[in-house]
Simulated scan of single mutants.
Amino acid sequence: MPYAILRTTKIKTSGNIAASLSHNYRDRETHNADETKAHLNSHDHDSKDAAFEAIQNRLPEKVRKDGVHCIEYMITASPDFFEDNNRITHDKYFEAAKEWLIERHGEENVITTSIHRDETSPHLIAYVVPYVFNEKKQKENLNCKHFLGGRKTLSDMQTNFHKHVSHFGLERGVERSVAQHQTVKEFYSKIQNPIKELKEIADSIIIPDTTFLESKEKYAERVAYSVWNQACDEFEDSILKTTNKNYIDLEKENSRLKGELEKSKLSERVVKREFFKFKNNMDIANKINNLPFENIKKINSYIDKKTDEIAEKNLINPILDQENKILFKWDKENNSYYLLINDQQINKKVPVSFIEEIKKCSSFLNQFTTKEIYNNNLKGGVEIP
């Protein structure tokens, strides 16, 4: 059962946009990508610089210090979707995903998209400027919170996206589960198996050397850029080289919830059926009570007569066994027979010595084990009416 996967991250500086695009366009070494498949990737813009310029041109002249410049969307599916379908279906899925982004943000704000096919699972990356029209001010404002603000908003986003792509046979994750929404970077890191500790990632990062006559500012900028790029590679390496454990767990959770739902529906049907039985019985009882007294007496007499007839049918002829009197009587409450030997009801309270003594002088009882007698299981000795 494949799942639709949608993750987001907020990009708050032009430097981070450039770094992300550099990774996206493979302008630097990307450890988790297969160089021989790079030609399979596709981009809306011909280069990183062209995509960067398009994003900058859409942004306002001034963005507040903590403002989100851009939302990066990562859209993919669990590995079995790509394994079970061909390239044509993959492309249609990504086309539908892009349509959803345009419906959500407007075509003018979905600046550029890329599809990576050089990694384990194909995925779409989209850069979106989060404009929202402000009715009060009658102008567009950057408002990332409108799209990604709060648990309900994120849950509604996942549900809405799933509805748009469900015709591909993709499932939505468990709705209203305790799972927290993850950013692209968190998702990449958390599904890794085994999960890399931050210390391991830090140890793997190579700090570049200084160059001749390079200023401290330039060197610091180059170090920050290099560290960011390498860390992104390490995090992203997790999504497309790891196991399907998260997806399998998700399938199990969905199956469990569906099972509970079926059980609850069954219980509801049983309760309704019993309720209608009770209601019918009450209707009959009320009708009887509303009859004249003489008629009620006749009905009660008829019921008693029928009860006696049923009891008579449940009588079993006594077994004549030398000096022992063996009887079977009908237990109305348990709807079964019970055994009496010499007027002693046989149950667990009867001592074994009693059974053994009876068996010594009874050829009939001697053919059964003590356990069979205790369980009233005298095969062949009961004459069924």
Rank of each mutant, 00 (worst) to 15 (best):
L261Y: 15
R64W: 13
I310M: 07
Y73K: 09
A38R: 10
N335W: 01
K359C: 05
H167W: 11
N143R: 05
K379T: 02
N281S: 06
N366E: 11
K348A: 14
Y131R: 08
E234G: 00
P318S: 03
E140S: 13
V352E: 09
S215I: 01
Q344Y: 00
Q367I: 07
F82Y: 03
G259A: 15
F364C: 02
M1A: 15
I115T: 02
K196I: 06
N290S: 11
A311I: 13
A220M: 07
I195P: 04
V382M: 07
S177A: 04
K62C: 06
S238Y: 08
N32L: 06
K10Y: 09
V165I: 14
N141A: 13
D308K: 14
S166R: 15
S336D: 14
K329C: 08
E383H: 00
N246Q: 14
I284C: 04
Y374N: 01
V352Y: 07
S353W: 01
N143E: 05
I206Q: 13
V110I: 04
I125C: 01
A19V: 03
G169H: 05
K48F: 01
S301F: 11
Y374I: 01
H39G: 00
N376D: 10
N286Q: 00
N286H: 05
E236T: 10
H23A: 05
L261H: 15
V350R: 00
N86M: 01
K258N: 15
L154V: 13
E99R: 09
Y25M: 04
I326Y: 10
T76P: 03
N16P: 02
Y127N: 08
E119V: 03
I384Q: 07
L59W: 09
M1L: 14
A231C: 02
Y225C: 09
K279F: 06
K190V: 10
Q344R: 10
K185G: 08
H69S: 11
P385T: 01
I55Y: 01
F293P: 11
V382I: 08
K190A: 03
I17C: 04
L240C: 13
L261N: 15
G149F: 02
D321I: 08
L320Q: 14
